[in-house]
Design a protein around this nucleic acid. Structure first.
Lengths: 208, 208
DNA sequence: CGTGGTTTCGATGAACCATTGAAATCTCTG
DNA sequence: CAGAGATTTCAATGGTTCATCGAAACCACG
């Protein structure tokens, strides 16, 4: 054990949950991984969900940073959306565990996961803002911005889910495909897709 | 208790799991719901997962029926896709439990859920075939049909997930939005969306 | 040293999954 | 209707996990 036991525990939990799932990783296993006895974990975390909440809190920051960065970098709404989707898919697939797995717990325990839901709502709002602006500019079709934002995020999480099962495509391939579908699906005119894609590429990958 | 205890058990399990989640519904609760003791359940199902497998097996049939029906009804690939997405979203949202919740178990237990994975693969294949034909006809953009099929299904499951949390939109609203985005996202020309939508509407909702 | 705060642990209890062998119930036939 | 044989139910039990508690070990510092 080198650093803060809290970090050690989170790192071990993160790895094990990615391997065995939330339900499949007992506290005793996490404990032995960091050289502690099972009951000792409860000194650092009062309940198992507290570990999950801490884990998801970290994971949640990433997409939020992404959408902020994308908005700050500017460009058309389509290009922003395109860059966000690609980066979001990449970020979600890079997590050591399935975010939906932990999301499942967050549904049952709104108190413990309060910050998760707050950040999640913020993420939807900011994405909706981009889409709303796109509609106002005439770049995007006229859609309900909030509904569109929700489906975009759902899609990112959905493919992340299936990616973990070992599909044959690389993450960039999936991200690019998804970004293309989503953006063209919201674009006012299909012919703009190549232009939007070029613009997104010119701005480069998001670095958060 | 009126009919086959097996059906009684599945019905109770289905309802309880929708309410409390897979991990949150003990066998004892299911048992008492159908007027049995906990251990008696194991006469009908050897393990808890067997109940879940039976549940998901039923649920899985629906999208499979849908895609077959849609293909049988004919029409352009875009219209078929549009009708399928709407019907699939409706079907998934109508399930008493979150299909992803059970899907999670299926990942860890490929033996028990063997039929699930077979039907799932079949679903992806048939959807991919529709998309492939659309590309060949020039209706759809040139995309990897299998990747596109996977993302379409992911999207349906993704919104179903979030729908359960009580979003403010109705199921038909969500389904229509998603179908529009997906279809236009894959269409060769945006201008065709209204035509495709009209065609899909003329064919009516899928009745499987 | 020794005092007070921090960290770890063993013991324990409650909830749940699963098994088992026996009891109760049903079914069918002579 | 008796009773053999199959079906269905259950109480008892064991193993695993989450969580709590009080005591012991450890540590910093006067």
């Amino acid at each position: 054990m080198v650093g803060d036991p809290t970090d050690e525990i989170l790192a071990a939990a993160s790895r094990l949950i990615g391997e065995l799932g939330v339900g499949g990783t007992p506290m005793s296993r996490i404990a032995s991984e960091v050289g502690l006895k099972q009951s000792s974990l409860y000194y650092y975390f009062r309940r198992k969900e507290e570990i999950l909440a801490a884990l998801v809190a970290r994971a949640n920051v990433v997409p939020l940073e992404l959408v902020k960065q994308v908005a700050a970098d500017g460009g058309s709404a389509g290009a922003q959306l395109h860059r966000f989707v690609q980066a979001d898919v990449t970020a979600l697939c890079a997590l050591p565990f399935d975010i939906n797995d932990i999301h499942r717990m967050a549904v049952r325990d709104p108190v413990e996961f309060a910050s998760y839901w707050k950040e999640r709502a913020s993420l939807e709002r900011q994405l909706a803002r981009i889409i709303r602006r796109g509609t106002a500019d005439g770049d995007l079709r006229s859609v309900d911005p909030k509904l569109a934002a929700l489906t975009v995020l759902s899609n990112d999480e959905g493919v992340q889910n299936w990616f973990r099962l070992g599909v044959r495509w690389s993450v960039p391939t999936i991200g690019l495909h998804l970004a293309d579908v989503v953006v063209q699906g919201l674009l006012a005119e299909t012919s703009q897709l190549t232009a939007v894609r070029a613009e997104a590429e010119r701005l480069g990958p998001v670095d958060a």
